[in-house]
Design a protein around this nucleic acid. Structure first.
Lengths: 135, 135
DNA sequence: CGGAATCCATAACGATACTG
DNA sequence: CAGTATCGTTATGGATTCCG
């Protein structure tokens, strides 16, 4: 998504291309894909089954039409979502997770679970930190 | 990290505050925390044990001094990392994952594993998509 | 050494208007 | 309905300089 002309120097260190601390390591690639504000929410909304554009828009609170289009295009491009156009008037377009896209769902589950378990502690720590520094 | 004065309308839909499709749901909170380019890489680098500032900088390829400082402060604020200052000249500062921070590590492992398994398929789909549309 | 502060480029995003 | 196009704003992050 960002930077592609930066890869010049280095590249050989650690344990090769899987080394999480080189550029273009898989971790970075994944984060560039799912690390935005909307991707995982859209994948989550599609985890229940096929939805059309306006339905996704309704379930993912606050997303703009532009970001929904853009994010869905990215997911389609990466083979994580299929886009089916029904040539009617008015148009109807359905989105569905591919098998590859579906493998993301459990991962998001873990993410969400972690969030539920640790969120309160994090919020507390944050408030405490903010208080002690504004003193 | 972003938006905090947007929360006004709505807020009551779905199944309450844990509903992933409301604002401020845990999933969004987590993504705002770990969804940037550097957080998980830093957590990963600290998963092996305590490191000092310059050491992290060396292992996380491409990070600027500004972003390292900024990200570490965020992690400290959220109680995921401790910061220990040794009052010497020249200064020495050590960073270490807290127990809460350490619970993030397995999650990152899953992320990385998913990346390794699916990256090639995604790259292929992407290339194919790009080719067929530029035709 | 480990920052803080400033400046600046760009990328992300929202709002709005228009279209097949 | 499901987009595309354009614009303006804000967020993000790099480079540089300075400091205890």
């Amino acid at each position: 998504m960002a930077g592609k002309e930066l890869l010049d120097e280095r590249q050989e260190m650690g344990e090769g291309p899987w080394d999480p601390y080189t550029r273009d390591c898989p971790t970075r690639q994944v984060l560039d894909r799912i690390g935005d504000r909307w991707t995982v929410l859209i994948v989550g909304s599609l985890s229940g089954g096929t939805l059309r554009f306006s339905e996704i828009r309704k379930t993912v609170y606050g997303i703009s039409q532009k970001m929904l289009t853009q994010t869905l295009r990215g997911l389609e491009r990466d083979g994580l979502v299929t886009r089916t156009i029904y040539p009617q008037i008015p148009p109807k377009v359905e989105y569905q997770l591919t098998p590859a896209g579906a493998t993301l769902v459990p991962l998001l589950g873990s993410l969400q679970e972690w969030a539920k378990e640790h969120m309160s502690v994090i919020i507390d720590a944050r408030n405490e930190y903010d208080q002690s520094e504004s003193a």
